[in-house]
Simulated scan of single mutants.
Amino acid sequence: MKLAVVTAGLSVPSSTRLLADRLAAATVAAAGEPVAVSVVELRDIALDITKNLLTGFPSPQLRTAIETVTGADALIAVTPVFTAAYSGLFKSFFDVLDADSLVDKPVLLAATGGTERHSLVLDYQLRPLFGYLKADAVATGVYAASSDWGSGEASGALQRRIEKAGAELASLAGGRPAAPGEPEFVPFEQLLAAD
């Protein structure tokens, strides 16, 4: 399985990247099969994204990031929250993707922010965006506030949400039906028994 992780954190180190890494690890642990993880740090290609929005031509680095995301079997998308919404850099990256490039792709939605007040960004900002892109978002989204990283009890609750969401993504990606145009293998014995 190929897993792409898009993270839009701006600082180094970034709590957004930390959450992305923990979500990827939980998905890999739950997958039960080898998983190749590729991380796309939007901070590193921010100028390329802006130039693409202005010119319509992706740089080689942006083209690689786009191919990583569109060619993956599953996606983890993590954004920091600014003014009660996903970051402009996060939205701009998904704006440069072809509108049909994420159709039926399993995706885990996550966000980080300073307070718990922004947790609704998952349902009121991210789900509509990925719904428009026709991606298949798992039921559990993960929001991590600053307080989730501090105390043992809060970080334990965060870890449980991470593991639940990772398991849902691994299950959805692993149980996907054959892609359109790809023949489904049916054992010969089963074909004979159909009569």
Score class of each variant (00 low, 15 high):
119 S>I: 10
79 T>A: 11
44 D>H: 12
181 G>K: 14
59 S>E: 01
62 L>I: 03
151 S>W: 02
13 P>K: 12
184 E>I: 09
92 S>W: 00
174 G>W: 13
39 V>Y: 14
165 A>N: 05
111 A>M: 13
191 L>K: 10
65 A>W: 00
62 L>A: 04
174 G>T: 12
123 D>Q: 08
11 S>C: 04
186 V>T: 15
115 T>P: 04
30 A>L: 08
154 A>L: 11
161 R>L: 03
146 S>Y: 02
61 Q>Y: 00
21 D>M: 07
92 S>L: 01
142 V>R: 12
13 P>W: 10
100 D>E: 15
190 Q>Y: 01
117 R>F: 10
45 I>F: 11
182 E>R: 14
31 A>H: 12
54 L>C: 03
158 L>I: 02
160 R>W: 01
158 L>M: 06
117 R>S: 11
149 W>I: 01
33 E>D: 11
57 F>L: 13
180 P>V: 09
36 A>P: 00
92 S>N: 15
15 S>G: 04
16 T>Q: 13
108 L>W: 08
171 S>W: 14
59 S>T: 06
56 G>W: 06
99 A>I: 05
175 G>V: 14
115 T>M: 06
109 L>N: 04
162 I>V: 15
20 A>R: 10
170 A>R: 08
100 D>S: 11
168 E>C: 07
137 A>P: 15
53 L>A: 13
125 Q>E: 06
4 A>P: 04
154 A>Q: 09
54 L>M: 14
100 D>G: 12
20 A>H: 04
70 T>D: 03
64 T>E: 15
6 V>C: 07
194 A>M: 08
6 V>L: 06
186 V>D: 05
54 L>V: 05
146 S>W: 02
88 G>R: 04
141 G>A: 11
170 A>P: 09
26 A>G: 09
24 A>K: 06
152 G>T: 09
74 A>C: 06
129 L>M: 13
88 G>F: 02
146 S>K: 07
131 G>C: 05
132 Y>K: 08
1 M>P: 08
164 K>C: 03
147 S>Y: 03
40 V>C: 13
145 A>H: 07
103 V>C: 12
29 A>Y: 02
55 T>W: 08
171 S>H: 14
154 A>D: 09
11 S>V: 06
21 D>T: 09
142 V>I: 12
78 V>W: 10
157 A>K: 14
17 R>T: 13
48 D>A: 15
64 T>F: 00
122 L>R: 09
93 F>G: 00
135 A>L: 03
122 L>G: 03
137 A>T: 13
11 S>M: 11
69 V>F: 02
94 F>R: 00
53 L>Y: 05
128 P>M: 08
77 A>D: 02
